[in-house]
């Protein structure tokens, strides 16, 4: 089990959190104009890199707030945490896709 730093509560055990998958996946604009392939990618396709990955977590057994983290999926090391609405820190941006 690792310690994950909630941006509001500080470091807590992993078991207090739930995982939310890839971060920064926006609901599509003009949904009526989407092709089947675009819908498929919105619904079913997420990045799956080995390396830095921007993802969502919720502090379910604490403040119950969502936040984002950049984590290295190869080492499981958390490289940064940041609040919803804040920009993704530069370190993971180039490699997360």
């Amino acid at each position: 089990m690792q310690l994950i730093s909630c941006p509001w509560c500080g470091p807590r055990e992993e078991a207090e959190y739930h995982y939310g998958g890839q971060a920064h996946v926006a609901y599509p604009h003009e949904v009526g104009a989407l092709s089947d392939a675009d819908w498929a990618h919105y619904l079913f396709f997420r990045d799956n890199p080995r390396g830095p990955f921007a993802e969502r977590w919720v502090h379910a057994a604490g403040c119950r707030r969502w936040f984002n983290a950049v984590r290295d999926t190869g080492t499981h090391e958390i490289l940064a945490v940041y609040r919803i609405g804040e920009p993704q820190p530069e370190l993971g941006r180039q490699a997360s896709r």
């Binding site: 089990m1 690792q2 992993e14 078991a15 995982y19 998958g21 799956n48 080995r50 990955f53 993802e55 984590r71 999926t73 190869g74 080492t75 499981h76």
Partner: peptide
């Protein structure tokens, strides 16, 4: 979580 490290919690 997504992970490629061959170990778990």
């Amino acid at each position: 979580f997504n992970g490629y490290g061959q170990r778990g919690a």
